[in-house]
Design a binder for these strands. Sequence first.
DNA 1: CTGTTAGCGCATTCAC
DNA 2: GTGAATGCGCTAACAG
Lengths: 354, 354
Amino acid sequence: MAKQVKIKDIARMAGVSAGTVDRILHNRGNVSRTSREAVERVLSETGYRYNIHTSAVSLRKEYRIVIAIPTAIKGEYWDSIRTGIEHAIDEYSDISIVREYAYYNQFDIYSCRASFKSITESSPNAVIIGPTFASETRELCSELDRMKIPYAFVDSVIDGLNPTLSFSCDQRTCGLTVARLLHLMTPGGQDFAILSSRRTGNERSNNSLARKAGFMEYFGRNCPEKNIREVKFSVLDPQESERDVLKFIEENPDVRGIAVLNSRGFIVADILEKRGIGNVSLVCFDLTDNNRRCISKGTISAVICQRPELQGFYAVSGLIRNLLYNQEDGQKEHLMPIDIIIAENLPYYKEYLP
Amino acid sequence: MAKQVKIKDIARMAGVSAGTVDRILHNRGNVSRTSREAVERVLSETGYRYNIHTSAVSLRKEYRIVIAIPTAIKGEYWDSIRTGIEHAIDEYSDISIVREYAYYNQFDIYSCRASFKSITESSPNAVIIGPTFASETRELCSELDRMKIPYAFVDSVIDGLNPTLSFSCDQRTCGLTVARLLHLMTPGGQDFAILSSRRTGNERSNNSLARKAGFMEYFGRNCPEKNIREVKFSVLDPQESERDVLKFIEENPDVRGIAVLNSRGFIVADILEKRGIGNVSLVCFDLTDNNRRCISKGTISAVICQRPELQGFYAVSGLIRNLLYNQEDGQKEHLMPIDIIIAENLPYYKEYLP
DNA sequence: CTGTTAGCGCATTCAC
DNA sequence: GTGAATGCGCTAACAG
């Protein structure tokens, strides 16, 4: 039963006017110590929370949010993040939000630099960053810090930076989970493999390392006798992919379980299917359209989903809360749930409903 | 870029006043056919959506929502639903919502009748129902229909009724998923078992049947050679439970995988652990505190989670939207995702974050 | 430094 | 059947 008390009430109770209370609530300065103390006391006594609706009504500014993420190709990982972002902007359509995408090519550091440069030049009200290149991101963030522009990370976090908010999964735990699933999905398997992408520049390299560490940790702890092979394959050139994968399979006929520690599991699945190799189980990351197709078909056994849509959604809503209501209170680093998708629960999987 | 246009704009464009537009928007009658048509045309042309904030501000009514669910014991299934409900009410604290719980004992049909009777007598603005007893629920709903009170189902749905909203999982698919997990978790297992609760009255009986059907369907389709035993055990009297479970294990030494098609998996897990029976894997439903403990410990292999908190949350928010904004548009029946929880992804599992 | 005041967009009387 | 007028709680500009 909080929320009855209004700004006028606490003004009266503190013996000041509504304007003063408002100044205090928004750290807008120009308030005497005595007033501030009186008001703050009443504030905490009453547990005042202002009405988000009336607040939004009065506060009729326009906010510009720039989103700096790798190019979002329909049905792929970054597109899910984008979907969540759009969803949030739509949900908050009562507040004027202008969003601008500053896409960059995750394999091209120059495109990243160009994109990041344009951001600080346009001085937006907030930024959402899908960090790929560490040092470029660092530079961008230190500039944003200087300009006092809030920013949120999605997908992953760069060490040593201090974003307003971040949304990502614990990648070591993802690796553990993948290992567990692969182990389960490969009854009697003795040899396992990690396939990772060759030539992906810096692509989420932190993520990949942590995933691998988790994966190895699982097998080291639970079945040190298993052999874990590792090989890189091309994810850009289909012919090369096929050659890489088939060569690996030929040379390692005892491998029965393959983990692809990125979202490109479908590439491997499609190759194996095409060649009629059906006795190998496959686990990978991210519920992209292609992976979805392979799970239904059974050529991928399981996928780890990091709730990319929700990451995007929360990044926007969190930044809006920060901009509108200075809500710094909450947690800053959010570790998302790690979802497990198999053929059975795929049909009903979605990240939000209404 | 919708949402620029306001009520005054469309009033002007239709050559009427704001009041008339409002009457049309809220089906409040007293409006001429010509006006209505003019306005509706402009409305659809502009894709008008009114501002949820200003709307909420003006619309300063108090709403009473009654929640009729089985008694929520801390850390158990219905308590998660309750948590989601509370969370939503808190989130909507800007709108005056009074909630009243009409708990009933899910094993006592008389308590259910009494609880349901009190509901219609108090004529609330909306009702959330966790349906257990089918015919009692039917009666309640037909009364609510008559009184034109919107109601939402959580956890499950009763056939032939027409709730404003419903949130539940597809139980057959849950059964399939449990079967798949149990199959995976029990390498080399030949005999499997379903343990279900004895003496639970009508407890979610529809759910149980559908779950079992899904479970049997999986094994029938994928490994018809496996034997599926079935036995009931007490979930109320610990001594009796123990006797039931141990007797079953003794008589069926070849069973290596047990599915408990309700949330009481921990009871079986604890008994097995106590007796040092470690070679049996166990899969059950719902991430209760007890099940959580058993998953961490490894005495339960996997759990299916039906996002009860989100069910509660969405039931409230959906009803509020219905009450405030007559938003009948959206989908009515919502089938929740089916989450798979194992030891690895348990630590980060949560239903919402910020 | 402080109090007063004019809206924000919408819902709802209340005269016409 | 209709339009003008009032107020919701809060913000921000302005006058002191």
